[in-house]
Amino acid sequence: MFTILVVEDDPTMKEIIVGALEKWHFEGIAAIDFDHILQTFIDSKPQLVLLDINLPAFDGYFWCRKLREISKVPIIFISSRDTRMDKIMAMNMGGDDFIQKPIDMDILMAKINALLRRTYSYLDHELQVVEHRGAVLNLKDSRLIYDDCQIDLTKNEFRILYMLMTHAGEVLSRDKIMRALWEDESFVDDNTLTVNVVRLRKKLAEAGLESRIKTKKGQGYFLE
């Protein structure tokens, strides 16, 4: 079953869309917290997003740009706006289609089915990110995204952060981390690990994440 995230501010319209999706045997998930759409997206792992332009706080264009930083999942804009510029902006921001309100549900379902067929018949757009307290690690390009900052990580920095994020709150020993950095019969020694952690902490600090990696004396590191 395909999961579709509905980002719509109008409660009545939201209910109508989710109901129509269920009739077509989709799982419709309605966004509730409009300040944390990205988190809702990560948690629900949808195969398609229906995104209104007029939203509280930040508009649909903003959230489309944020979604495109971590995923290529198809996005259909839904809006009462009908100007040529709105449609151009929607496409330029990364949208795949645009449907105007009032919505003809048969047309919307036809667009959804067509877009899902085109997308998932030959591509796998499964979400490949790890998230911790608003920081998103993109597994495809080894980049950390936090607010408006994008941090490029080296291979070892990425592996260290990936381990810490996937074991958040758990103390990982230095030995365990070093074993994960083993590659091409070249073992990363204790000093190399220290250097990489120092560099990683410096990059996190530049993005306002300076206190995330903690040291447990005599044991190892953990992510707070």
Rank of each mutant, 00 (worst) to 15 (best):
L116R: 02
K111G: 04
L67K: 06
I70F: 03
L115I: 15
F62N: 06
R179G: 01
I4P: 00
T215K: 15
I53R: 01
F158E: 05
K202Q: 13
R65Y: 06
F26D: 02
K87S: 08
L200W: 00
V7P: 01
L137N: 08
F158H: 10
H132D: 14
D82K: 14
E157F: 10
I32E: 13
Q219K: 15
F41A: 01
I29M: 07
D59N: 14
R133G: 07
K140F: 05
T3I: 10
A20P: 05
R65C: 11
K203Y: 01
M1Q: 12
E157G: 13
C64I: 00
G19H: 02
P102R: 05
K111M: 09
K101N: 02
T12R: 09
M89I: 15
K214R: 15
G218D: 07
R179A: 07
G95N: 11
L115H: 09
F187T: 02
P56L: 03
S121A: 14
L127S: 05
L172W: 05
V136T: 11
D184K: 08
S173Q: 02
E210T: 06
E131Y: 06
A207T: 03
E15V: 12
I4C: 00
R81N: 13
T83A: 06
I88D: 10
I88S: 09
L181H: 01
M93H: 14
R118S: 11
E8V: 03
I151S: 05
K14P: 02
A168C: 08
S186K: 10
L55N: 04
L181F: 01
D96M: 10
D35I: 00
V171M: 04
I75N: 12
M13N: 11
R199T: 04
F62S: 07
T154K: 09
L200Y: 00
L204G: 02
I37K: 01
G28C: 01
D124C: 10
R65M: 12
E185L: 06
E185W: 05
L137M: 10
Y120L: 04
I99R: 00
I4G: 01
W182N: 10
A30G: 09
V197L: 02
A135I: 04
M178P: 03
S80D: 14
L204R: 04
K14I: 02
S142G: 07
D10I: 09
I4H: 00
